[in-house]
Design a protein around this nucleic acid. Structure first.
Lengths: 128, 128
DNA sequence: TCTTGACCTTCCACCTGCTGGAACCCTTAT
DNA sequence: ATAAGGGTTCCAGCAGGTGGAAGGTCAAGA
């Protein structure tokens, strides 16, 4: 497979795949013309990374997960620990966003939203 | 006030305040020794930006809000429109995170988390 | 008066995770 | 022969800062 095929099948842009090679996730062979040549295993790895990224794992998380993925002797406990940590971070982000949302929607509700210059949103933002 | 005082009172790191000067948010006077010298008005502006940033407004949003903040003739409708747009984006982010959370917590629940190498989390991530 | 330590300055590089573009080579069909 | 549509490299840049080096300045204590 060329990079375009892998891009289509994995759902990742070709640019991103080249970047993932750069940072050492994959090492595709090269044809005589210099083209990258991918096998099914690399496709799976890329799909793996893509899904992990879309679940909010960082690149460094992916590195760890990938090592575990490739290690037939690893314990599922390791993986679960990382996933749980990730879950905690997601929960923290959701809580942050909800707090923001509450403050902002309160301000929006108080703002007349008309032609007058008086605006509770700006007044509140300017408090020191 | 020197930058350290403003940093403490505004809650922003000194580095960030210098950066905000760089991108044109403030233009503090300079003393004979080259030190930045801030007045209350600039402190307010920095506090304003800090709060707006913490509510998820981008730097460009801040630029607009700051212009409105300083314009005594602006209508509150302009401000409300920007805030509402921001609210929509926050909602979208929350929805995304919740979807991630659901998938991940499902995987975590299915994983035995013991010494065995079989792990549903990795199996699922590896699907193409 | 000297020295120490806490401030302040500038500048440059780096972080995450890509993405865009330029300039170029290779393949395939017409 | 040529044009379209692959592929390659490298360089620059996005947001929004952060870290560090190398140096100037100020105030207090011995």
């Amino acid at each position: 497979m060329n990079i375009g095929d892998v891009a289509e099948r994995s759902g990742l842009p070709a640019k991103t795949i080249r970047y993932y090679e750069d940072i050492g996730f994959i090492k595709p062979r090269r044809g005589a013309n210099g083209y990258r040549h991918f096998d099914e295993k690399e496709l799976h790895k890329l799909a793996f990374i893509g899904r992990a990224r879309s679940l909010g794992f960082t690149i460094e998380d992916c590195r760890t997960l990938l090592a575990l993925y490739e290690d037939k002797h690893r314990a599922s406990a390791d993986v679960k620990r990382i996933a749980k940590q990730n879950l905690k971070e997601i929960d923290a982000k959701i809580a942050d966003l909800k707090a923001m949302r509450a403050t902002l929607s309160h301000l929006v509700a108080e703002c007349a939203g008309d032609d007058r210059p008086d605006c509770p949103i700006l007044n509140d933002l300017g408090r020191v």
